[in-house]
């Protein structure tokens, strides 16, 4: 294959040039600017870790962290439990499974902004009877976001779990049945251990999606009331574009956010991968 080596400009340059513009340069520039004070790049002045100190002292930022963390944990559990149950129900022989699958998956194809406004209509229609609204009460805002994201993502995770169920060899389940395992024992001792690869993927996707959520947050509550439903991504956005002079702080928050997402992804992978069994 040595002959193809000298053809690298044709094969690599288009992707790598775009990758440099779209990712590598902004990433490196982002790390650098988080240590400076700037409004445009040319006036950047080195200020050390001052931006990071300001970010940690910002109470809206720490609040958004706890809000996001709570949100990510709640959606992680709800989405995975419901998607797992649905997948289990839909892999049994049953009439109309294809219709069910089609319907449950559909919301996933709708964009975050559109989803936000669809649900705003529904929630305001319900809450108007209780003389309240989503943007008046942070608790309602939280659960509104949870419902929206569950509605969006359950179908996606269900598809992954269905693929997982279909790859479990039938003889393992048969053996459990012959050995006299009841339904509950089969589920916890056979099915779930065999499903660990799918569970790893789905928990990874749901927890990182939960932390990175932006569009839905912006469209449904936009942080109201008083930034109480502002999640980390939206908080960073508002720091950048809400007040001038805080670009450096916004970038420092973005770096913290990035490190946090990487740490959580790594931790999650370690926790669930260790529970996977050889098939």
């Amino acid at each position: 294959m040595r002959a193809i080596k000298k053809y690298w400009p044709i094969f690599l340059i288009p992707t790598m040039a775009a990758f440099a513009i779209g990712f590598v340069i902004p990433f490196i520039l982002g790390i650098y600017l988080s240590f400076t004070k700037f409004t445009t790049v040319t006036d950047a002045k080195w200020v050390g870790i001052k931006n990071y100190a300001t970010a940690f002292k910002d109470s809206t930022f720490t609040h958004s962290f706890w809000f996001t963390a709570a949100f990510a944990v709640v959606t992680l559990i709800l989405i995975n439990v419901i998607a797992f149950a649905l997948a289990m129900a839909l892999t049994k022989k049953r009439r109309g499974t294809n219709v069910f699958r089609t319907v449950f998956f559909m919301p996933n194809l709708i964009g975050g902004i559109v989803l936000g406004y669809i649900w705003q209509l529904i929630f305001s229609g319900i809450l108007v009877h209780f003389n309240t609204a989503l943007n008046l009460n942070a608790k309602l805002g939280f659960w509104g976001l949870v419902i929206l994201v569950c509605w969006q993502q359950i179908g996606y995770m269900m598809i992954i779990y269905i693929a997982g169920f279909q790859s479990i060899p039938g003889d393992v389940l048969e053996a459990a049945e012959i050995d006299g395992a009841n339904a509950r024992q089969t589920l916890f001792k056979v099915t779930i251990p065999m499903m660990m690869p799918s569970i790893t993927i789905c928990t990874f996707l749901t927890i990182t999606n939960g932390f990175k959520l932006f569009d839905q947050n912006l469209a449904l509550t936009a942080g109201a009331p008083m930034k109480q439903t502002e999640m980390m991504a939206l908080n960073i956005y508002n720091t950048f574009y809400g007040r001038t002079g805080f670009e450096g702080v916004g970038q420092a928050k973005a770096v913290i956010f990035f490190l946090l997402v990487v740490a959580i992804a790594a931790l999650q992978q370690k926790l669930t991968r260790s529970k996977e069994v050889q098939q």
Binding site: G30, K212, F214, V262
Partner: peptide, 19 residues
């Protein structure tokens, strides 16, 4: 390429619009 998949968009959004 693998690394870029974990990086959240907020990390590069401001600098990307500058570039």
């Amino acid at each position: 390429c693998i690394f870029s998949m974990v990086v959240p968009f907020q990390m590069v959004m401001f600098t990307l619009s500058l570039v």
